[in-house]
Write a protein that binds this DNA or RNA. Structure first.
Lengths: 110, 110
DNA sequence: TTTATATATCGTAATATTGCGATATTAAAC
DNA sequence: GTTTAATATCGCAATATTACGATATATAAA
């Protein structure tokens, strides 16, 4: 099937999963880290840095933009990408809330 | 192609991406939350709770086990799944380290 | 106006993921 | 031993993802 049954889960579960999913590719991790290290960059920088085709980088940038974690602004004939700090922090908070759920382990094998 | 070019990224980037990827499905989020709420559970509980087929749940459990975030121990004819608290915290720390990289935003459009 | 540059999008092939029925395996219960 | 129950695995179909060449678009430079 290959089709996730989104309807049987809560909106929160689906949203959280999408955030994780978008970050779940090494190229997108690398893109984020490169943008951070350079403060900002253009698509072509990433093509040279990562060694993926321009179309591929553009696609990854689109996915990152879809969750708002990066933002692109037109600058002449190129597009300047940078981290959206607000969204970055919000995602961090959401992940933190998830990981700080009560994990009271009653050792089930003890 | 559909094949991630893992070789062009660092080991750390690949590892981090895999952690995110495994968490990037609502069923697996739901499984973790249910295990937490019940302290521990068996596969069949999840089948009834989530409404996915037993084979599907078993597969998701396998993926969660692959990153060590849950652990299953045989108890008679069933398997008791619970959170591996150590791994849980380690993953949380790794995510935190990622999100706490310097995000000094020099507004590129300013 | 032509040319060069940067990016987005389209189309497509290869591979991965999701989900489930069927079946195997294993252990308890009878 | 037979039956019941719980889970894992296999095999498959449907869909999604990844990657890239080709092409469209848009701006700067010449």
């Amino acid at each position: 099937m290959g089709l996730t049954k989104s309807t049987i889960f809560t909106v929160e579960q689906n949203k959280l999963a999408i955030l994780f999913k978008v970050l779940g590719h090494p190229a997108r991790i690398a893109v984020l880290q490169y943008i951070i290290s350079q403060k900002a960059c253009i698509c072509n920088d990433l093509v040279e840095e990562l060694g993926l085709a321009q179309a591929t980088i553009s696609q990854h940038l689109k996915e990152l933009k879809s969750i708002g974690i990066i933002q692109g602004t037109i600058e002449g004939k190129s597009v300047c990408y940078c981290i959206d700090e607000k969204v970055w922090k919000k995602i961090q908070e959401e992940f933190d809330a998830f990981f700080n759920q009560e994990v009271k382990v009653t050792m089930c094998w003890a």
